[in-house]
């Protein structure tokens, strides 16, 4: 209880800190910390696989990628002139709706919640039978029961890989392309003026 409360408090504090920060480098680092804290809480909530992944992804790869981007794109955020009223309003309404939605939720850890009782027998027993003793039920679900989702997930990763490659790869031809594009834009400028 104490641990989870303190982790949750820390998460909230970190989130606010990130929101207020102007230094992007620090914000990225704090995001990593945020992910790490989140992962620890997931560990407490009996989801070691997710915690492991979140730690690897949130605290690892995405931090690394963001730092890489920062190195290419600049580290300081300019103060915004736009009024924060509208976003605050939107967020306020959304948040209020969500809190309103929680009021009828099964309570935290409720063993009678539909999530726990709906599927009978549950995945743990069923997988013991179907999988001939595969200890990690999460893996069984991931790769077999919901293997198709995971195929989708792999496709997403594949898509992202190809997308990044396509967006960022420099080809010799690409340079020519950009030159013609630049000349086209100057031409347009000339006409409009």
């Amino acid at each position: 209880m104490f641990v989870s409360v303190s982790i949750l408090t820390l998460l909230a504090v970190t989130a606010i800190a990130i929101a207020r920060m102007r230094d992007l480098w620090a914000a990225v680092m704090f995001t990593g910390i945020f992910s790490f804290l989140g992962a620890s809480w997931m560990l407490i909530l009996d989801a070691p696989d997710v915690a492991f992944t979140e730690a690897a992804v949130g605290a690892g790869i995405s931090t690394f990628l963001m730092l890489g981007t920062l190195a290419l794109a600049g580290k300081k955020e300019k103060p915004t002139t736009a009024s924060p009223i509208v976003p605050l309003l939107v967020v306020g309404i959304t948040g209020a709706a969500l809190v309103y939605g929680t009021l009828d939720m099964p309570h935290f850890g409720d063993p009678a919640a539909p999530v726990q009782t709906r599927i009978e027998p549950g995945f743990v027993e069923k997988s013991q039978h179907d999988m001939h003793g595969l200890p990690n039920v999460v893996t069984a679900l991931l790769a077999s029961y919901r293997g198709y989702d995971t195929l989708g997930e792999t496709a997403v990763i594949f898509t992202a890989g190809i997308a990044v490659l396509m967006i960022l790869r420099r080809d010799p031809e690409d340079c020519d392309h950009r030159v013609t594009q630049k000349s086209a834009s100057t031409e347009k400028k000339g006409r409009s003026s």
Partner: peptide
């Protein structure tokens, strides 16, 4: 056991 489906 905690429900594994959300984890997945």
């Amino acid at each position: 056991y905690t429900n594994p489906l959300p984890s997945v």
